[in-house]
């Protein structure tokens, strides 16, 4: 059971994170490769607050959400000046900067060797100390996040964001404030990523910079693109599939000698084939 639970817990955390990335990259079209950095800030915030007994889990999670909101707005602001491909470079730089901070700010983050022994979560005194309780908590938060995503996408705000991705000039010509809409989207995505980070920290009880590096950002994009950009179903399916992929691949019985390299190859081929034959993702609309 624990196996299934740990899979479901991590997948639901990545669903929340996937929604954040989907909102920014899929819906608004701000092609950020630094979302794992924001996720990391959320995780470190909660990890630090709980490890040093500064506050309880709920306020720590709220703090993480606020910190990530502000930070995500700040790092998304350059996208107003530089667009598309150029922002990828900017955001690549931000990701490297974040990894450097996680690695070198030893006093807060524990440096390269990470932060271990983060206490488990509690909800107003009720300890979340078993896999089942953690699953219930993360699943509830993930459902809440999905519900919020759905409300947004069906609202005029969602339509504004979709329009923004297609043509910023036309949005301005329709009398909308492009800057304000982007800031709002980044803020919302930041909250999602911060909450996901906090849940991740208390579940794994160990975090280190390698979990929030460029590879992680790319993996996150893979989840969103594979699931299907801009759709709620895509943000759910993508993380569930990608988190399961290494596990699924290990089911293929291969001689040990070649298993590792064969799996690496299969993984790559799967992704390429997938994008060739279903570029819109499993559940998505085309980009």
């Amino acid at each position: 059971m624990d196996y299934l639970f740990s899979y479901l817990i991590l997948a639901s955390i990545f669903v929340i994170l996937g929604l954040s990335t989907n909102l920014l990259v899929g819906v608004v079209g701000i092609f950020s490769v630094s979302q794992a950095a924001i996720f990391g800030v959320g995780a470190y915030t909660v990890g630090y607050a709980l490890s040093n007994d500064i506050m309880g889990f709920v306020p720590a999670l709220a703090l993480a959400a606020v910190v990530c909101l502000v930070l995500n707005v700040l790092i998304t602001l350059p996208s107003l000046r530089v667009s598309g491909d150029y922002f990828v470079v900017t955001s690549f730089g931000i990701q490297l900067l974040a990894t450097a901070a996680f690695t070198n700010w030893d006093a807060i983050t524990g440096g390269a060797s990470g932060m271990a022994g983060i206490p488990t979560a509690d909800l107003f005194g009720l300890p979340i100390d078993t896999s089942l309780k953690t699953l219930i908590l993360t699943a509830c938060v993930a459902c809440l996040a999905c519900f919020a995503f759905r409300l947004v996408m069906r609202s005029p705000f969602g339509r504004l964001l979709m329009a923004l991705r297609e043509d910023e000039l036309a949005v301005a010509a329709a009398g909308r404030q492009v800057l304000r809409a982007k800031v709002e989207a980044a803020a919302l995505a930041g909250v999602f990523a911060g909450v996901a980070g906090g849940l991740y920290a208390v579940y794994l009880s160990f975090i280190d910079p390698s979990t929030f590096d460029l590879d992680a950002s790319v993996l996150l994009l893979t989840m969103v693109v594979l699931g299907g950009a801009r759709t709620l179903a895509g943000s759910i399916v993508g993380p569930f599939v990608v988190v399961a992929l290494p596990q699924l691949l290990s089911l293929i019985d291969l001689p040990t000698a070649i298993a590792a390299s064969a799996r690496q190859g299969i993984y790559g081929v799967l992704l390429v084939a997938f994008m060739l034959f279903r570029p819109q993702g499993l559940m998505g609309r085309k980009i």
Binding site: M1, D2, Y3, F5, S6, Y7, L10, S131, Y200, L204, F206, I207, D208, S210, T211, V243, P246, Q247, L249, S250, T256, A259, A260, R263
Partner: peptide, 22 residues
């Protein structure tokens, strides 16, 4: 029985639970 964690702590936790509980 080998499990691949891709060097990621989260995958390692899943793999751990898989090997232990299954």
């Amino acid at each position: 029985l080998y499990e691949d964690d891709e060097g990621r702590p989260d995958q390692a936790v899943i793999s751990f639970n898989k090997l232990v509980s299954l």
